[in-house]
């Protein structure tokens, strides 16, 4: 009994402050959580909307898309359909990832409604070398611009060439060949399998 008394005498302040702080945290959480969740949802659509300006909303597909990963195991991909103001399909957006030079690269890629032409990509997360590999993150920089309008098929990387010419030949960033190759590889691993899956499930004609 006296032990218990000692315990409370020594630690009542800690207990009281824990309860008070707990209440404070609960209050802020209740006040801000909806906003935080909204931000997370908006993040994808904001990035995707810069690539598909016509799209108003992005909806998940009723039937999830599965493609084989690099070891051949099935992997779920978050493919969303962009809808314009009238509810017609404005294009497709999906998140894809693969290993870059230092760490994983995560991209949002958008394709037009017929899944034939890429409308570009945006970087969700990357940890590439500053000044070299991180040039892939420059919005509308020469590297990103090469993807805007490129055909949605197998892409190849070249060290030299005309970067203004929009085709399936992507010109690498000087000093960051590995990163440039990584982006091409990620797109190659995703675009064609997703296209096939969409066609099989009847989302595309």
């Amino acid at each position: 009994m006296s032990n218990l008394k000692l315990f409370f005498r020594e630690s009542w302040l800690l207990l009281v402050s824990s309860v008070l702080f707990g209440g404070l945290l609960a209050l802020t959480d209740a006040a801000w959580r909806p906003r935080i969740q909204q931000n997370e949802i908006n993040k994808f659509s904001n990035l995707a909307r810069t690539l598909l300006p016509a799209a108003e909303t992005f909806e998940h597909l009723a039937d999830p898309i599965q493609i084989p990963d690099d070891k051949g195991r099935p992997m779920l991909v978050d493919v969303r359909r962009g809808l314009d103001a009238s509810g017609a399909c404005a294009g497709w957006a999906f998140v894809c990832e693969g290993s870059g030079f230092a760490d994983k690269i995560k991209l949002v890629v958008c394709v037009d409604a017929k899944f034939e032409i890429l409308t570009g990509f945006q970087v969700l997360a990357s940890n590439e070398t500053p000044g070299f590999g991180d040039k892939i993150t420059i919005q509308n920089g020469f590297y990103q611009a090469q993807y805007k309008g490129a055909p949605a098929e197998r892409l190849t990387l070249h060290k030299a060439g005309d970067s203004k010419l929009i085709d399936s030949e992507i010109i690498a960033i000087t000093g960051a060949t590995v990163t440039s190759q990584a982006v091409v590889d990620i797109l190659n691993a995703y675009v064609t399998p997703i296209k096939e899956q969409l066609r099989q499930k009847g989302f595309l004609q």
Binding site: E10, S11, L13, L14, S17, S18, F21, L24, L25, T28, D29, W32, R35, I36, N39
Partner: peptide, 28 residues
């Protein structure tokens, strides 16, 4: 009111709570 041996504990707790609030503000 601070007791010497629980002092650091209370400091840490206080700091952690306010950091959580700052972090949530930035996230929101």
């Amino acid at each position: 009111l601070l007791k010497p041996h629980l002092r650091i504990m209370i400091f840490t707790l206080t700091i952690a709570v306010f950091v959580t609030i700052a972090d949530m503000y930035l996230k929101a």
